[in-house]
Amino acid sequence: MNKWVRENLWRHSIAIATCLFSLFPLYLVILSSLKTSGSLQVGSFIPHEVSLDNFRFLFHSPKTPYVLWFKNSLVIASTVALSSVFIGAASAFAFSRLKFKGKKLGIRLLLLVQMFPAVLAISAVYVIMERVYTFAPNIGLGSQGGLILVYLGGSMGVNIWLLKGFVDSIPVELDEAAKIDGASPVQTYWLIFLPLATPVLAVVCLLSFIGTFNEFILARLFLVEMNGRTIAVGLQQFIGGQYASNWGPFAAGSILASIPIVIIFLSLQRFIVNGLTAGSVKG
């Protein structure tokens, strides 16, 4: 008993305290989504009223085609996640395994460019996509296709960088063996590397998915059509008004939107831990 206390009590105390810290705001979101009024303030820890009005509003008001938004978010985020990992993995492989002139420069450039503050780039992206709209409305400003392209471009740097770390962690011996067998780099990539890297690709895919799911600053410029919006944009209408904000439906909508992500995250947590650290450990 004494030993248990000495060895484990502090572990549990730290864990419990931090868990409370983690849960505190989350609990309050749930409370505020159950209130009838439109504010985000919760005066007490005990719910005084439990009402599903906000949730009902999301599904029944014509102002909120919530299911459609959800579908849009899923489609856009998964398209971006899958494509960017598909494209990014190839580049990461090249950076990690191939020898070529300018590789060092390329990697530095990739790293440096990511440090450029992207906030102002929005204006430039807007102008580019506005012009694309004039000849290809389906991939220009105002279209989901266009937004997907912009996200793909934006996520490229981060994903290549992350994936490179993962690729580095896969033992070189494996593909060297393949090389001896006479496989070309392209064959090595498809036949040896991709199957091996599937778990880490999945992790980057998931992180990319979450990032895209969350984004609203660009999305609100692109997804103007009510039925084409993502959740992050759709819920904006409750909080970005000219004079007033309505937090209730926003909280309810956000909770529903985050449930699937949290579930995926929790069910894949072992996977994610391994994936995240794999990239770092090798450096």
Binding site: I217, R220, L221, L223, V224, M226, R229, V233, G234, Q236, Q237, I239, G240, G241, Q242
Partner: peptide, 11 residues
Amino acid sequence: TFSSYSALGAA
């Protein structure tokens, strides 16, 4: 229709 007044302003 924009998703919010601020989105309209941003556009």
